[in-house]
Computed example of a mutant assay.
Amino acid sequence: MFYNYQPMDYRKHIRYQNKGFTLLEVMLVVFIISLISASVIGYAKIVDYHRSIILINEANEVAQALAQYYSTHGTYPQDLTAFLSDSSYFRVSLKDPYTDAPLSSLLGTRLIINTSNRTVEVKDLSNTSLAVVSFSVYQWNQIQYNIDGKVYGGADYGQ
């Protein structure tokens, strides 16, 4: 009776069951894609934040150099483009971290130097003010930062 026993063909059932993805597989793929996209967006925000910090630090260097120039010559430079290109007042050549262009090319647009008010203002690519650095001959560190709509610092910041 059991001599003619043939095992059941399971391939028909397996072929029928594997026609799609399970809910678990779909959820796993969606989760992995969302993790990757969140990390890319977070990385872009971090890079933009660090570029704005670099630009603020360069505004500080410009303010220091203007105060040093004034203490040496008794007046502020007439040609600001030549002043920004002068290597004797800056430790390194200043460059825009967004476009890698020389900082002197930003004069009047994203780098605003006002010698009558003694301020240096820098703006990001969307023309939003990042920082206004006030300087004088004796005290250059009156800094007010504006990052992501939040204002940091003020008069005598850093003392």
Results as ranks from 00 to 15, higher is better:
K150N: 12
I53E: 15
P77F: 06
Q6I: 13
G74R: 09
H13E: 11
L94P: 02
R110W: 05
V151P: 03
S129M: 15
K12N: 01
Y3K: 10
D100W: 00
S88C: 02
E25V: 00
T75I: 11
V29Y: 07
T119L: 07
E61F: 08
I46C: 05
I147K: 08
D79T: 12
F135N: 04
F21W: 08
I112F: 00
E25G: 04
I143D: 10
I46E: 10
K95G: 01
R11G: 12
Y69V: 08
I46M: 04
L55V: 03
P7S: 09
A44N: 14
F90A: 03
G149C: 06
Y69P: 04
Y3I: 00
H13R: 08
F90T: 03
Q17T: 14
S105C: 02
T75E: 15
S34G: 06
N4K: 08
L130V: 14
Q17K: 10
L111K: 00
G153M: 03
A63T: 05
N117D: 13
T99M: 00
V40A: 10
S134R: 12
S104I: 03
T115D: 07
Y10T: 13
D79N: 15
N4G: 14
V26T: 10
L84F: 03
L55D: 05
Y145I: 10
S105D: 13
P102W: 00
D156E: 08
I53R: 15
D124Y: 09
S134V: 02
S52Q: 15
R51V: 01
F21C: 02
T128R: 08
L28C: 08
L28M: 14
T128I: 05
L28A: 14
E25Q: 14
H13I: 14
A101H: 12
P102V: 05
L106T: 07
N57I: 09
G20K: 09
G20E: 11
R15V: 03
S136C: 01
Q6M: 14
S126Y: 13
S134N: 13
L66N: 09
D48F: 03
N141T: 12
Y70C: 02
I36D: 03
I113M: 08
V120C: 07
F31T: 13
W140I: 12
S129W: 04
S39E: 11
L23H: 08
H73Q: 14
Y89S: 00
V132A: 06
N60T: 13
E25D: 04
E58M: 12
L107A: 09
N114D: 15
L55T: 09
I32L: 15
I113E: 12
H50A: 02
I41L: 15
I32R: 02
Q144Y: 02
